[in-house]
Simulated assay, not measured.
Amino acid sequence: MPDRNNPFEEIERLFDQLSRNFESSGMSKLKDISVDLEERGDEFVVTADLPGYETDDIDLAVRDRQLTIRAEHSDTSETSDDAFLRRERTQRSVSRTVHFPEPVEEEASDASYRHGVLTVRLPKQDRRDDDEGHRIDIE
């Protein structure tokens, strides 16, 4: 029975229902990737937190001044006894795109993954290789 002295009771009930619906939809399992972007002299270094993933779960692509990180993991567990069977399936998927202020050498980039932390090193493109051309001195 609603408490007539609490004007916010109906709002609280709706928030509780919304929260339950959100959790049951699986959307609460979606998480963003925490990323640090550093400029270190002639390269960019991207560090991303991806705990719980294996190296094979992670996909990296670099193109047009941007790095896209995707990770996906699926797991199935099953327990049973004489009267009870339980099977659980989980799937996690995250994605993040990082934009660079300068072009990078796509083929010279490398990555490592240790203890849930992904590190990607992307050398800056030599400015002489830019599509903007080069300067011609006038004599």
Rank of each mutant, 00 (worst) to 15 (best):
residue 48 A to L: 03
residue 26 G to L: 03
residue 42 D to M: 14
residue 65 R to N: 10
residue 55 T to S: 15
residue 27 M to C: 04
residue 60 L to A: 06
residue 73 H to Y: 08
residue 54 E to R: 13
residue 42 D to Y: 13
residue 57 D to I: 08
residue 30 L to E: 12
residue 17 Q to M: 08
residue 48 A to D: 01
residue 37 L to Q: 06
residue 24 S to T: 11
residue 25 S to I: 01
residue 25 S to G: 03
residue 66 Q to V: 00
residue 48 A to P: 01
residue 51 P to F: 07
residue 71 A to R: 01
residue 61 A to V: 10
residue 58 I to M: 07
residue 74 S to F: 07
residue 27 M to K: 10
residue 29 K to V: 12
residue 36 D to T: 13
residue 70 R to A: 09
residue 40 R to C: 06
residue 63 R to Y: 07
residue 72 E to I: 07
residue 69 I to P: 00
residue 73 H to C: 06
residue 60 L to G: 05
residue 39 E to N: 15
residue 24 S to I: 10
residue 62 V to L: 12
residue 25 S to C: 03
residue 27 M to S: 07
residue 26 G to R: 03
residue 50 L to T: 01
residue 32 D to M: 05
residue 34 S to E: 14
residue 43 E to F: 12
residue 44 F to T: 00
residue 28 S to T: 10
residue 64 D to V: 09
residue 66 Q to W: 01
residue 32 D to S: 11
residue 52 G to A: 06
residue 61 A to Q: 11
residue 59 D to Q: 14
residue 23 E to N: 13
residue 22 F to W: 11
residue 39 E to D: 14
residue 64 D to R: 15
residue 61 A to H: 09
residue 66 Q to M: 13
residue 38 E to T: 08
residue 65 R to S: 08
residue 72 E to V: 08
residue 64 D to A: 15
residue 37 L to W: 04
residue 30 L to N: 11
residue 39 E to T: 14
residue 25 S to P: 00
residue 26 G to N: 03
residue 23 E to Y: 09
residue 37 L to M: 08
residue 34 S to G: 10
residue 73 H to M: 10
residue 63 R to M: 11
residue 74 S to G: 15
residue 54 E to P: 00
residue 49 D to Q: 15
residue 66 Q to R: 15
residue 19 S to F: 09
residue 65 R to V: 00
residue 48 A to Q: 01
residue 25 S to F: 01
residue 73 H to P: 01
residue 17 Q to V: 05
residue 25 S to A: 04
residue 60 L to M: 06
residue 46 V to N: 01
residue 61 A to I: 10
residue 40 R to S: 12
residue 30 L to V: 11
residue 61 A to D: 12
residue 55 T to R: 14
residue 57 D to V: 05
residue 50 L to S: 03
residue 51 P to R: 04
residue 65 R to Y: 02
residue 32 D to L: 07
residue 70 R to Y: 07
residue 33 I to V: 10
residue 66 Q to H: 12
residue 20 R to S: 14
residue 25 S to N: 02
residue 20 R to M: 09
residue 28 S to W: 04
residue 18 L to R: 08
residue 61 A to L: 12
residue 72 E to W: 02
residue 25 S to M: 03
residue 38 E to Y: 12
residue 68 T to V: 14
residue 33 I to E: 00
residue 36 D to N: 14
residue 29 K to C: 07
residue 67 L to T: 02
residue 24 S to G: 06
residue 31 K to Y: 09
residue 63 R to S: 13
residue 74 S to P: 02
residue 72 E to A: 13
residue 31 K to V: 10
residue 28 S to P: 00
residue 67 L to I: 08
residue 35 V to N: 02
residue 44 F to N: 02
residue 73 H to V: 09
residue 26 G to I: 00
residue 23 E to R: 13
residue 54 E to H: 08
residue 46 V to I: 10
residue 31 K to W: 05
residue 62 V to W: 00
residue 57 D to R: 05
residue 63 R to N: 12
residue 28 S to L: 05
residue 47 T to I: 07
residue 17 Q to C: 02
residue 56 D to W: 08
residue 29 K to I: 11
residue 19 S to A: 07
residue 55 T to V: 13
residue 65 R to W: 00
residue 60 L to I: 11
residue 36 D to P: 02
residue 20 R to L: 11
residue 53 Y to I: 06
residue 17 Q to H: 11
residue 40 R to P: 01
